[in-house]
Write a protein that binds this DNA or RNA. Structure first.
Lengths: 138, 138
DNA sequence: CATGCTATTGCAAGAAGTTGCAATAAGGAA
DNA sequence: TTCCTTATTGCAACTTCTTGCAATAGCATG
């Protein structure tokens, strides 16, 4: 049990608290592995914590993403999904069949550097979603 | 008047129609130039067309984006905004102060090519939003 | 210019996401 | 262990976005 307990010190160090709601949501993300919509997270987590509210799920997911424990990604048309934070990667989605491919961050590294030096910005978030047609559909 | 009329043949050729709603929305996007949220578009366009509905605005913006007359972009946390389709560009947004910078597509060209050859995908949409800290905030 | 096909709209109901505020409960300190 | 501070949650009301379906209106055709 309790991958989730590993996160406690990370939170405490910054003045935040570990709660049963956060644990349940982290457990869901961790166990499922892939992308989940807020509603999906809510349905799963509620099995462990029946009086969890959707409000809390939305707020918690945003909180986790902001503090690096989860990542958010834009799918299809402007909807956010979340996954547990692991290796840095991006997504490539087929507009036609919806097929999704992971893209290693290393492929974009040079471009990130070019972008930083030309703009003066320090890029923080690092999840991009690209849309296109996969080899079958094009 | 009627930049909007220029679009008529584009639509007809593909079997779509030019309507007063589409004209009003295109006019708003064209006149404003920058990013607008669906609600902002609705409020502006309604001045010209009082019985326009929000439903239609949402559907029209999606339609225009799908057919290349407008572009959609993800801002802040998962909300879509739209602008008239012009030169290809991307955005760089400061997480702290919200300041926004345009990024020329040419800067990302090499990366797009790398991505296409390594994935087999043909990239279609070409608007990305990057998040970071601007030179003042970092 | 009248007709017919069907793309497009408006309406109404619903789903998804947000916000303010008072009540609750982590977890540090006594 | 108990107390206290305040981060976090739940509730309720609200805004934003989506969907199905019947009514409307572009526009090609005769």
């Amino acid at each position: 049990m309790s991958v989730t307990l590993d996160y406690v010190p990370q939170l405490r160090a910054r003045g935040y608290r570990m709660t049963s709601q956060r644990m349940a949501i982290l457990r869901v993300l961790h166990h499922f592995g892939g992308h989940l919509s807020p509603t999906q997270v809510y349905e799963q987590a509620r099995k462990q914590l029946p009086n969890l509210t959707e409000t809390t799920v939305y707020r918690t997911l945003e909180f986790l993403a902001e503090h690096g424990l989860a990542r958010s990604a834009h799918m299809g048309n402007g909807h956010l999904v979340y996954e547990i934070a692991q290796h840095e990667h991006h997504h490539l989605i087929c507009r036609n069949c919806g097929n999704t491919v992971e893209v290693k961050h290393s492929l974009l590294k040079t471009m990130y550097q070019k972008l930083e030096s030309s703009s003066g910005y320090k890029l923080t978030d690092s999840h991009l979603t690209f849309f296109g047609l996969c080899s079958d559909c094009k």
